[in-house]
């Protein structure tokens, strides 16, 4: 256990920025479930915020504002649009790496590290997300992003570009060689965030499974097994 005083000083280090990467991420995750820590961080932000006055302004390059506005106008729903922006940037970055490393054409199921950094809340740090996967059918069309906080084994599913299946539902499955059959994680909607608990699966299963989305009758598969085609899939990648 961390002593309260230690915790407050870790909060202070979080705010001044001196924590190593792993500790920063861990503290950001703890902040989500420990109101006392969250309050300590906010208190330190307030204590030190006058220092911001000393930072001299540097003219931002021309063209940033139009670029920002173009992104605001992007034809995606506003909710979660920031995630899509991140995603696009990461896809570009991933492609650069992939082009050099393994060749993009080979990749039909893409997974890559995604740090979710633009999240709701007052100056919120990254969500307690340790693993992320993109579910997609090919490199150009990410459809859902799933993220898992391995500590709580809660999965968040966010649609980024999935189109509404006419008269059908999307259903998410966990697929693992140790299972006799894929197991349902529930119906996911193309227009809202969803959460699923993976608490019944071990961390090893959670991190080594494939996550797949099928098209099912409205409300989900009537049989408990996938009945429609897999339209998107991906594997989790550890973040950092």
């Amino acid at each position: 256990m961390t002593e309260p005083d230690d915790l407050d000083l870790l909060a202070a280090e979080y705010v001044i920025g001196s924590l190593p990467a792993e500790e920063r991420i861990a503290l950001a995750a703890r902040r989500q479930r420990e109101p006392a820590l969250d309050a300590a961080i906010i208190a330190w932000e307030r204590r030190l915020s006058p220092l911001a006055e000393f930072v001299p302004g540097v003219g931002a390059p021309e063209g940033l504002l139009p670029a920002i506005e173009a992104r605001l106008d992007a034809p995606t729903g506003r909710d979660g649009a920031a995630d899509v922006v991140i995603l696009r940037r990461q896809v570009v970055r991933w492609r650069r790496i992939a082009a050099g490393a393994i060749g993009l054409a080979a990749a039909t199921v893409l997974t890559f590290v995604l740090r979710e950094t633009l999240l709701p809340g007052f100056v919120r740090p990254p969500q307690p997300t340790s693993f992320v996967a993109m579910l997609q059918k090919d490199a150009a069309s990410p459809a859902f992003v799933v993220s898992v906080d391995i500590a709580t084994r809660m999965m968040t599913i966010r649609a980024v570009a999935a189109e509404k299946p006419a008269g059908k539902s999307y259903e998410l499955w966990i697929v693992n060689a140790s299972f006799a059959a894929p197991k349902s994680l529930g119906v996911v909607r193309e227009d809202q965030k969803a959460a699923a608990s993976l608490a019944t699966y071990s961390p090893d299963i959670v991190t080594n499974s494939t996550y797949a989305v099928t098209i099912e009758p409205v409300g989900g598969s009537p049989t408990g097994l996938p009945t429609g085609p897999v339209v998107f899939s991906g594997k989790l990648v550890q973040v950092d």
Partner: peptide, 21 residues
């Protein structure tokens, strides 16, 4: 918070996340 403090905190946090990454 003052507006500039709020804005600067968002910017610092994002930059710190990025630089640690």
């Amino acid at each position: 918070a003052s507006p500039i403090t709020w804005l600067a905190t968002i910017a610092r946090n994002r930059a710190l996340d990025e630089v640690r990454r």
